[in-house]
């Protein structure tokens, strides 16, 4: 087994990476930048694909890869919600982790070429979408207009602030709309929930693909809004989350109907989701 590449002989055995940088995104979200021991990335990922991160001996957890920067690093943005993520938030630069992957289908970047892109996210839901957003910017000529609608509970809870407020609005033919749930001092931007803001902005459905990720309740209302606005089920894409252990469609737990989220997902069109039992 090589030192820094994933062990392709046995998909359940992780390779070792090193944390090269950690950044506070919000009070409960941190970004972790990892690379192989001696350089390189442990594996190549497409936007929306997953990586299984091991913090030994604590645990192993599946996270969307928020970005792969060439052969330099993988970026995971991880919210503190449980045992494993609590411990992840206590590690320091230089910590070595196990990582295996890539898992899952990822976003349909090819099929979306030539389309206008509408990204709608809430809270940590921006983490998986970010890889697709950055991919569109990297291949800017392949995609049409880009609109990003993002909301969080408060200003402090907005992830990736540098990109949201500085970098992305500078990109060609790009609009970034940001909202927070409640008014607060010093915030002169939009206040309100994402679904209402979406209807206010009312981006035309024609020629567009909407990519949605966020808390389940936000997704539910956003899907209703999109339908009202004339988006077909084929024009709407989401990425799902379930508890996972193996990542390779064997251990059983992440099924929705006969589909395994780790293998057949996590990305589905709304048309595909409507074929599945409503357990997502």
């Amino acid at each position: 087994m090589s030192e820094h590449k994933c062990n392709c002989e046995n998909p359940l055995v992780p390779g070792i990476v090193e944390v090269i940088d950690i950044k506070d995104e919000t009070p409960d979200v941190k970004s972790f930048f990892v690379r192989g021991i001696g350089g390189g990335v442990p594996f190549d990922v497409m936007p929306g694909q997953l990586g299984m991160v091991s913090l030994l001996p604590v645990g192993e957890g599946m996270y969307s890869v928020s970005w792969q920067e060439e052969q330099e690093y993988l970026h995971f943005a991880i919210k503190r919600v449980g045992l494993m993520t609590n411990e992840m938030h206590r590690i320091e630069v230089g910590q070595q982790l196990g990582v295996r992957g890539p898992y899952g289908n990822g976003f349909p970047v090819e099929e979306c070429k030539g389309k206008d892109m509408l990204f709608i996210a809430g809270g940590i839901g921006l983490a998986p979408l970010r890889s697709f957003i950055k991919y569109c910017f990297k291949h800017r000529q392949d995609y049409g207009k880009i609109q990003i609608i993002y909301g969080s509970r408060s200003y402090a809870d907005l992830c990736f602030k540098d990109e949201l407020f500085e970098e992305w609005p500078q990109e060609k033919d790009t609009e970034v709309y940001i909202t927070i749930d409640n008014p607060e001092e010093g915030w002169d931007g939009h206040v309100g929930f994402v679904p209402a803001y979406l209807e206010e902005i009312n981006p035309a459905a024609e020629g567009k693909i909407a990519v949605v990720c966020g808390p389940p309740v936000m997704i539910k209302f956003v899907l209703e809004s999109l339908e009202k606005m004339g988006y077909t089920d084929e024009q709407v894409i989401s990425t799902l989350e379930m508890r996972m252990k193996c990542g390779i469609g064997k251990c059983g737990r992440c099924n929705v109907g006969s589909e395994y989220i780790c293998l057949d997902g996590p990305v589905f069109t709304l048309a595909q989701l409507k074929q599945l039992p409503p357990e997502w």
Binding site: L12, S54, L56, P57, V58, G59, E60, K245, C246, K250, C251, G252, R253
Partner: peptide
């Protein structure tokens, strides 16, 4: 029935990862 869990057993600096029926 084949569903399994993956868990860790550790002591001090050492340990192993194992899978077991779930």
């Amino acid at each position: 029935c084949y569903c399994f869990d993956i868990q860790v057993k550790s002591w001090g600096e050492e340990g192993y990862r194992f899978r077991c029926y779930d």
